[in-house]
Design a protein around this nucleic acid. Structure first.
Lengths: 112, 112
DNA sequence: TGCTTATTTTGCGAAATAGACAAATAGAGG
DNA sequence: CCTCTATTTGTCTATTTCGCAAAATAAGCA
């Protein structure tokens, strides 16, 4: 605690104020931090899809797909719409596309 | 599998090509998907900090802080530099700031 | 009503993760 | 070499996450 930047750190209580926000942000990140859920997000950028179509894409158990979808739904990222027998999912955040682009950029930068 | 968009889904094998990329992206998201690590990332946007300073900010066990730092380091997000007794950490991806802004926007949009 | 299909929920085991403590390591400096 | 401080690593426990299969739910249709 004696290092050169200690004084600066001590005055940074704005971090305490923001801390609650980091919880919300971490939740959002966690919702997206899975290959299958990223795949779902990218697929839904173009158009809505129903659960069985997403199952074809993910090539995974239907219950697994359903759970991934509920994670994304609980994060506030997508909306379900039941039409007939099928449940269609579509994105509800315009900012997601831009976010995914930035993430892709970041990964490229970090692994180079 | 009989829904109206099935034909579209069947031709989307570009998702298979991208699938390896989703693994890398999910890893990056996981590295950031923790309130303490988000706090670290934000703190380091301004200037480098040593481990004991970050411990003051996080108000957490030193070993816990060290673990969080190693997670971010393994993700390729930061670089350590030992000077004297202290180990200073600083970010190494210019894209991180923009990414965090977009994430904040996304959270605001999703929770409104 | 009964049948069929689509989707969600539940229970389970395996694996990953977080946090705490103690022990080990790395340097600085006498 | 010895000691002190800063940091990392090993190990343990508790909690969460993932994927599957089986059971439950929902909606269309005969």
């Amino acid at each position: 605690m004696d290092c050169e930047t200690t004084k600066r750190a001590e005055t940074m209580n704005l971090y305490d104020i923001k801390r609650a926000n980091y919880d919300a942000q971490a939740k959002m990140m966690k919702a997206l931090a899975h290959p299958s859920r990223l795949l779902i997000a990218h697929a839904l950028l173009d158009h809505e899809l129903c659960v069985c179509e997403l199952r074809e894409l993910l090539k995974q158990n239907l219950s697994t797909v359903s759970r991934h979808l509920s994670v994304l739904k609980n994060a506030g990222l997508l909306i379900e719409e039941k039409r007939g027998l099928y449940v269609y999912y579509h994105l509800c955040c315009d900012g997601l596309r831009e976010f995914l682009i930035r993430m892709n950029d970041l990964v490229g930068e970090a692994t180079s």
